[in-house]
Design a protein around this nucleic acid. Structure first.
Lengths: 186, 186
DNA sequence: ACCTGAACACCGTTCAAGT
DNA sequence: ACCTGAACACCGTTCAAGT
């Protein structure tokens, strides 16, 4: 049996997917779990702390996704698989994606959430390092290549979610744009 | 003398800079302008429509910034200047930057706001086209190079605003990362 | 056409009280 | 330790009324 705290986090995540950030009210979350509208205050300091817990769980999931991709022998395939899985997460959970990467209140938090976000980026950095050790862009500092790939991946996802560029065919297939960047790094 | 509508937009933009999105309540905006708390409804359908007007004005400003950069003779310098000005806008107005590029309610709007967003991207696309005509990455489709540069620029800005990667030195100087990408396109 | 004041439903948060 | 119910301040939105 899951604890009330865990059930609150799951309910909040589900509401994010269902109706976006504004649908995730403490009252709605509490109602889904079946407790009174202020029971969540016994588990989280305030609404932001509850959202942070959702974000932290998702960062952990993303880290696991990247670690799993790292098990693929060919670093080139591993990196492409990581990018693909990252896009799949964003498309499946757009509101939660924005919570993790574009919410100012969440971004401003330190502590365990910041740790989780760092671990996700580090797991991605390891994929990039393996890619470079495999003979790609070896002359470039790994930190910069990681920043370039991570930012491009996020920028493409965010613009696609926002529908920016949709007209005029716009961004087109964002996976293809990442592959173009990887080709430039060859 | 500015119209009430224009004063409402200015006041909303100022509140964004001062306290972020949550500070931009209809009541606060109305108070700054000196009208009753529901006078804004005579000028905008609802709160989102008012925010959209703020976003539209900012997109127009960004378009002007890109057009101005296009007047620089050397396409390489022009593009770098555009990127630099884009980052300057985001750093100066972080909450408004997110409104334009990462707010789901704003992104979902069509009409004149979508037009304005498209014009901004097109102005950037022209800078990229000139850059390519000048002898860079000529073999690559302009639409993809534009998507790559626009997404990378946005991703870097958004991650910097979110503070993601700040520890572990993180992204470092995001201008340098864009310049690295431009070097790869050489 | 533009504005005001009252009212309503909803929300985050606090508090006193219960087990 | 965990939960409930009442209450408060605040917000978006609507409505009837005024000029």
């Amino acid at each position: 049996m899951k604890s009330t705290r865990e059930r609150l986090i799951s309910a909040a995540a589900a509401l994010f997917d269902k109706g976006g950030s504004s649908a995730v009210t403490l009252r709605a979350v509490a109602q889904v779990v079946g407790v009174s509208h202020n029971a969540p205050y016994k588990h989280f300091k305030d609404r932001n702390a509850m959202l942070a817990a959702v974000a932290e769980a998702d960062f952990a999931d993303l880290t696991a996704v990247f670690l799993k991709a790292g098990a693929i022998p060919k670093p080139d395939t591993a990196l492409k698989q990581a990018v693909s899985a990252f896009f799949a997460y964003g498309r499946k959970h757009p509101a939660r994606y924005r919570l993790l990467f574009s919410d100012p209140d969440i971004a401003a938090r330190g502590g365990s959430l910041e740790q989780a976000a760092m671990q996700t980026m580090q797991a991605f950095a390891r994929l990039v390092a393996a890619y470079q050790e495999n003979g790609h862009a070896q002359e470039l500092p790994s930190r910069m290549v990681t920043a370039l790939l991570y930012a491009t991946m996020h920028g493409l996802m965010d613009l696609e979610l926002g529908g920016r560029g949709k007209p005029q065919k716009g961004l087109g297939d964002i996976e293809a744009v990442v592959h173009l960047l990887l080709r430039l790094l060859r």
